[in-house]
């Protein structure tokens, strides 16, 4: 089996999930210059809600096809996350709209801790496993394996990103979002209801996060009240890598980060003569984050901050 191709595939799969979560970070940052640290937890809640729904459905209607059960879980997780993000923005961030930037940032960390603890109370401290209900087909491609689930994850992610791109570039709401990102004040003076646009931004990001949460728990086969923390940090790193505030950058950054991480995990054993193993894979995301912050703080596709205004 070709390690390089295999890790490339694995990286693209995980990377497309990172990209989806990173979009939520970058959209909110683009408009509010706020790093919404609670976004990782929204992803976690998405996974947890979906798993609960799946569990209940499997208990009450065991004859339903597995795919339908998972889709039902997803379809309930999405509105749940949208409502959650809407509420978070309204009660935690909106009152601080005019406060110094550090205040909402710290609030975001607080919200993230609250959500983690709530999830722990509701779903417990133990890992919740994702039932094996999805088809487990496997294919050979260029000497590597790719599963049906991996294909679905990549395709769904790409479709979601394309959809978001169209929304932002081609619709009335997207125009209002871009205008608000450039200048909240002017957008408002041109008749844009900025509060509503900001709410919509959070809600759209949360819908995408719910999808990502379900994907990641299906992929790794489990979910946990703490899963949003690491996933959120990596997605945030991906957003910074691509250039935070830049939507295309989040997509590129997510995919790149996934690939870097997978290749790193695949080769770190060989490179260090077995001294470090693949469980060090988390190191790469943050190594990349540090390199970007040192050498290109604006990210791959980001503009220099001075050019914004």
């Amino acid at each position: 089996m070709d390690i390089f191709t295999q890790q490339l595939i694995n990286g693209l799969v995980v990377g497309s999930i990172y990209a989806l979560v990173a979009l939520g970070y970058t959209m909110v940052y683009g408009i509010l210059e706020l790093i919404n640290f609670a976004h990782g937890e929204v992803t976690m809640i998405g996974a947890m809600v979906a798993l609960s729904v799946i569990g209940i459905l499997m208990g009450t209607a065991p004859d339903l096809p597995g795919l339908m059960v998972v889709v039902a879980g997803l379809l309930l997780a999405i509105p749940a996350c949208m409502a959650l993000a809407f509420t978070i923005e309204k009660i935690a961030y909106r009152p601080l709209r005019k406060a110094p930037r550090l205040a909402p940032l710290i609030t975001a960390i607080g919200v993230s801790i609250i959500l983690q603890n709530l999830a722990m109370l509701v779903w417990g401290r133990q890992y919740v496993s994702f039932p094996a209900v999805l088809p487990r087909g496997q294919h050979e491609i260029l000497g590597a394996h790719i599963t049906d689930l991996q294909i679905v994850i990549v395709v769904l992610s790409l479709l979601t990103m394309a959809g978001l791109w169209l929304l932002v570039e081609r619709t009335r709401l997207g125009r209002a979002m871009r205008a608000t990102a450039q200048s909240r004040e002017v957008a408002e003076l041109m008749g844009v209801n900025v509060d509503r646009v900001i709410s919509a931004t959070f809600v759209i990001g949360a819908a995408i996060a719910a999808l990502a949460g379900v994907m990641v728990s299906a992929y790794y086969g489990l979910a946990h009240y703490y899963m949003g923390f690491m996933l959120g940090l990596k997605a945030f790193s991906a957003a910074v890598l691509g250039g935070i505030g830049n939507i295309a950058g989040a997509m590129l950054g997510g995919l790149l980060l996934g690939v870097i991480e997978a290749l790193g995990a695949g080769y770190i054993g060989d490179l260090t003569g077995g001294f470090l193993g693949s469980h060090y894979q988390d190191v790469f995301a943050f190594f990349v984050l540090i390199l970007v912050l040192v050498f290109r703080p604006s990210g791959l596709l980001g503009e220099r901050v001075a050019n914004r205004a």
Binding site: T171, R172, L173, A176, A179, V192
Partner: peptide
């Protein structure tokens, strides 16, 4: 200019 039309149009998410 299209942003300016926002106030006179409705389409949402």
């Amino acid at each position: 200019v299209m942003v300016g039309r926002h106030a006179r149009t409705r389409a949402g998410v």
